[in-house]
Design a protein around this nucleic acid. Structure first.
Length: 314
DNA sequence: AAGCCGGGGAA
DNA sequence: TTCCCAGGCTT
């Protein structure tokens, strides 16, 4: 029932099912019509047919006991790699790692594997799993991995700060947890942006983003998207002119950082510079801050990476 | 490797 | 709306 179906959707069906078919024998003796009737509304009806057929085979060929060897179990209808490994580990305690959508997502992020979540990556994942798998408690390990994916390392809004394996996770380190695995449909838009780290008297200029939309009310360095046919420095001069009404000078390359959002991927080119004119608009959304105090402001992850660079340079 | 199979929950 | 879900089977 859980194949490609969420736990909340399954629970009521699961409970009714076990009342009607309390054991393998009762399922094996039931008519297909009754089996399908109990499955009605759950979808993927081939699963019901497979389960029914498997029950018949288990009763007729294996004395009503679910086979405990991989080969026999995997030959039953509906028993693919996941279900076979799940039964062997959860029911029989055998050292079989499972890879379901949760585990696949967790491991793709841990290893920083780009691309969509497909069974194609499973070979790589399985090799890694072998190195961390607990043969003492395979069932617990497998369920823990799946729970981690379902509750923390979620498809959307992963809770990296609460994640017990955060320090081993490449995606969390690189800020790519939102785009690993890559969403199946929409392609990732690539955005090139420039960032002006404007220094004056040992302080740096930051400004507050608009209160609505992307990164609302977060603070960042002046800057913006590079437009077509425009050089990076041209873009830098234009953005500072537009936002601050001032010209820049002493422009020097600082660093390049990458950050991934759900729908686009941005490359930030940071430049150190100074302002030629001092008469630009200050205001409540604009402040000169020291490198130390800047960390008290909420910044987008991309800006934090730039701040980290500046701090490390000291 | 890609298509197909379902319905619902969450954002 | 869009995306995805404790996959498996067929082409």
């Amino acid at each position: 029932m859980l194949q490609q179906t969420t736990v909340p959707a399954v629970i009521p069906y699961y409970e009714r099912w076990l009342k009607v078919f309390p054991d393998i024998g009762s399922l094996s003796r039931a008519s297909l019509r009754k089996v399908l009737r109990e499955w009605q509304g759950l979808g993927y009806y081939q699963r019901a047919r497979n389960l029914h057929k498997a029950a018949k085979t288990i009763v007729r060929e294996y004395g009503g006991r679910i086979p405990d060897d991989e080969c026999t179990l995997g030959s039953l209808p509906g028993f693919g790699p996941y279900t076979t490994a799940a039964v062997l580990s959860l029911v029989y305690g055998k050292p079989q790692p499972v890879i379901d959508a949760n585990v696949r997502r967790v491991l793709m992020r841990v290893l920083g594997l780009r691309g969509t979540a497909e069974a194609r990556v499973d070979k790589t994942l399985r090799a890694f799993l072998e190195t961390v798998f607990s043969k003492d408690s395979p069932g617990d390990f497998n369920q823990a991995m799946m729970e981690l994916g379902a509750l923390v390392c979620r498809s959307r809004n992963p809770q990296c700060l609460a994640c017990p394996v955060r320090e081993f996770c490449r995606a969390a380190r690189e800020g790519t947890q939102e785009i690993i695995p890559r969403p199946r449909t929409l392609g990732l838009e690539k955005i090139e942006a420039v960032v002006a780290v404007i220094e004056k008297d040992g302080r740096i200029l930051i400004q507050k983003r608009p209160s609505r939309g992307l990164l609302a009310d977060l603070w960042e360095f002046p800057g913006g998207k590079v437009e077509r046919g425009e050089s990076l420095v041209q873009a830098l001069r234009r953005e500072v002119r537009e936002e601050l009404g001032a010209e820049v000078e002493d422009v020097r390359r600082l660093t390049t950082v990458h950050h991934a959002y759900t729908r686009f991927q941005v490359t930030l080119r940071a430049y150190a510079c100074k302002l030629r004119d001092e008469d630009f608009k200050t205001g409540p959304r604009r402040r000169w801050v020291t490198l130390n105090s800047i960390r008290r402001y909420p910044l987008p992850s991309g800006s934090v990476k730039i701040v980290d660079f500046l701090a490390a340079r000291r």
